[in-house]
Design a protein around this nucleic acid. Sequence first.
DNA 1: CGCGCTCTTGACTAGGGTCAAGTGCAGTGG
DNA 2: CCACTGCACTTGACCCTAGTCAAGAGCGCG
Lengths: 245, 245
Amino acid sequence: LTAGPFQRDDAFSRRFGRFARSKADEAALADIRGVRHVVAKRKELIQDGAATLVAYILHEGWMCSYKRLPDGGRQIMDIRLPGDFIGVTGLFSAVSDRDIEALTDCVVSEVDKAHLISGMRLSPMLAEAVMWNIARDDAIAAQHLVNLGRRSALGRLVYFLLELGARLHDAGKGTSTTYECPLSQQMLADTLGLTSIHLNRVLRSLREREWLTLNGGVVEFLNPSVLRQLVGFDPSYLTHVAEED
Amino acid sequence: LTAGPFQRDDAFSRRFGRFARSKADEAALADIRGVRHVVAKRKELIQDGAATLVAYILHEGWMCSYKRLPDGGRQIMDIRLPGDFIGVTGLFSAVSDRDIEALTDCVVSEVDKAHLISGMRLSPMLAEAVMWNIARDDAIAAQHLVNLGRRSALGRLVYFLLELGARLHDAGKGTSTTYECPLSQQMLADTLGLTSIHLNRVLRSLREREWLTLNGGVVEFLNPSVLRQLVGFDPSYLTHVAEED
DNA sequence: CGCGCTCTTGACTAGGGTCAAGTGCAGTGG
DNA sequence: CCACTGCACTTGACCCTAGTCAAGAGCGCG
């Protein structure tokens, strides 16, 4: 894993290339990418309360954003995957309201605020792409909210793993029924508002029903259609559809 | 309640006026406001699945956005108050992923997408103000997520009512210890991921401890400092702080 | 007057948290 | 090669928070 040069199969290019209609568009996309960094597993990229100076594009690896509670617990807000922006909305508030941590070794590139704004002004396509991405993250957060507020532990886990699978597929990872998932049970629990003990019980129940397994960091859907129907999963909010004109 | 002309004490002007530094800025702010409408209580402003053509500024009244679940339940994502944008991020996805409904009689004005984008391009201040607002809504959603994932029923209710109070104060409504709240117990429950029955029990418990009351549509904090400390409420994410330069 | 809505309360249930003990395994050092 | 340690994962027993079911009160409205 190195902070090497631009690659065509980069998840960011896959996602945003769909918006580009001209050479100028592609140049605008390439232009917002600043310095590339490698971020080691377990290192914090952004701290809660720290000034928000730059955002990032995540090229390789998994990250998560979370909040700590007064009582010591934590709530993971979102998992960030290759191709995702990190901390874009945060650029417009004075300080970050959450921590962001690398779950695996990661490659990111910086996105400078002034640079991003001027890029969006010059390229309507870039503005559209960035705003669509913000809307997508918003839709993901909304689903997460529904998950925590109104679904059982089993439903939450199923929905979350299905959504992760769809997002990974979008980033060019995994197959339609299986993917690698570096999240520990404790992390899944912190995401879904459960204890790791209960999460373990739910996983066993899913295994025994032969619906899905999570073993050695690999998620496998044994019965995807039942799972999708169970929680009403419709992944259309995750991918951009071009406007008809 | 009429869809009358622009007013100086409008919550939107209060919120966004802080960003303006010139006559041109004020003109840009005034310029994105389109047609004014009155929306009757219980009417839907935006439907889940409908094409997203325009956004709105909420001038008067309360609205909420929610999602319905396959099993008939619902999760309220957020309460929208005077001065808030409605459906701005939604402008950048093809269809809305939630319903938005008036909880009281409301006054809104339309915000046209093309108009908004050109305004943001011409006025850096407008761009900054709109993006800050998106970041603020994001921070509110993040707190909501923490609420649902990691707090007890009592903690959720306390945090939510404190936050509402702070947001209303920002909009020029209520006092430091009391405000009018048109939300039924069923709506509060749908917001906080609880049943209305349990919400009622929690309200009783808060009343008996003499911490807060909700009676006849009026919230009153009897012991604000205890409540704030209980849930670690810090309202700084709700108001914009000007950058030092 | 009766209908329908929100709110209230009680009795019972169940989903998920807490506490505690134990397994499996990757490192590490003797 | 084998202890020793630490961490993630498992499982069981028990408890408590919040959901379910049911009944009734208060009140605005046609």
